[in-house]
Computed example of a mutant assay.
Amino acid sequence: MVLKQREQIATMRAAGKIVADTLALVAEAVRPGVTTAELDEIAERYIRNAGATPAYKGYRGFPATICASVNEEVVHGIPGPRRLQEGDIISIDVGARYRGYYGDATITVPVGQIDPEAQRLLDVCRESLEIGIAQARAGQRLTDISAAIQRHVESNGFSVIRDLYGHGIGRKLHEDPLLPHYGRPGQGPVLRPGLVLTIEPMIAAGAPEWRTLDDQWTVVTLDGSLAAQFEHTVAITDNGPEILTLP
């Protein structure tokens, strides 16, 4: 695990603000009839104008600035000509590199009016992220975060997607350790001040199994049920968790 100094975390906070502001701008543009490619253009323009570079574009061959995952798409959806429809939900995942450091965050938003159960899925996912962040304290074990998320999600009748992880982040987009969003508490490394993690629960209305589409990127629920994701970049500090991806 790479522990960050105060100055490095300050730079990551600046990167995180660019990510958060990008997400807010893209979320404002979400409406029936807009294409996911149009949302991607908004994000890339803002990130570059802020003096940062899109973290995902070109990363391992990914072709776009945002991941735009609609309905049963869990993560890594590729923006394109698809037009959003009333009642859809869309997860928007944004990463930015600023002065050598990364920020990374995700929100899931409704497209117009959505079904009450779809809204409950979004609410529970957001709550699970908040509950997980509350466990991200020095002296805790890594899977204390995991277990708290799983407990909240499953107690509300939803499932945690398996084998897709949060992770350390800093000069690299993906660093150790990997963070599952399910599991027994009290396992994994002890959390130490200076560790920065992405906490990013992905949950489904149905079963937790998934598959990857032929584009080799888009992950969808195996049973076609709706999926949601919320994510923040979080620093472990002596004074508790600090969310670095706030607007």
Rank of each mutant, 00 (worst) to 15 (best):
R45S: 13
G87I: 15
Y59W: 14
Y102Q: 05
V26L: 04
R97W: 15
F62I: 02
A20I: 00
E44V: 05
D88C: 09
A20T: 00
R82E: 10
G51Q: 05
A10H: 00
L3F: 13
G61V: 11
I92N: 08
E41F: 05
A50M: 09
T106D: 08
P110W: 11
I9Y: 00
G61W: 15
I42V: 14
A37R: 06
G51E: 08
D21Q: 14
G58F: 03
R60S: 14
A24C: 04
G51S: 05
A20N: 00
V109Y: 07
A68C: 10
P81K: 02
I18A: 07
A27M: 10
R48T: 14
V2M: 13
Q5E: 13
Y101F: 15
E41C: 02
L25T: 00
Y98M: 09
P54K: 02
L84V: 07
L23A: 08
R31E: 12
T65Q: 06
R83E: 14
V109W: 09
E73G: 08
G103S: 06
A68L: 03
V75G: 07
A68Y: 02
P54G: 06
A14K: 00
N71Y: 08
R97M: 15
T35E: 11
G33L: 14
Y102F: 15
R60G: 12
A14T: 01
V74N: 09
T36L: 00
D21W: 05
E72D: 09
M12A: 05
V70Y: 01
R31I: 00
I9P: 04
V94F: 02
L39G: 03
H76S: 07
G80C: 12
D88R: 10
R82C: 02
V94C: 13
K57C: 13
G103A: 11
I107A: 11
V26D: 12
V2G: 05
A105L: 09
N49A: 12
T65S: 11
T35Q: 08
I90M: 06
D40G: 09
A68W: 00
Y102E: 10
A43M: 09
V19E: 02
A15G: 06
T106S: 13
H76K: 06
T11C: 07
R13V: 01
A64P: 08
P81A: 08
L23W: 04
R13F: 12
A105E: 05
V34Y: 09
I9K: 02
G33A: 13
Q8E: 15
R99Y: 11
E7Q: 13
E72M: 10
R31D: 08
Y98N: 04
K4I: 04
G87Q: 14
A10F: 03
V111I: 11
T108F: 03
L84H: 12
T106C: 15
Y56D: 05
E86P: 12
E7S: 15
P32A: 04
D93K: 00
Y98A: 06
L23H: 01
F62G: 08
L84N: 04
G95A: 15
R13P: 08
D93A: 10
V30T: 03
A50W: 01
Y98L: 11
G95Q: 06
A68P: 11
R97N: 13
T11M: 13
Q8C: 07
T22W: 02
R99Q: 15
T36W: 01
R83C: 10
L39T: 02
V70R: 01
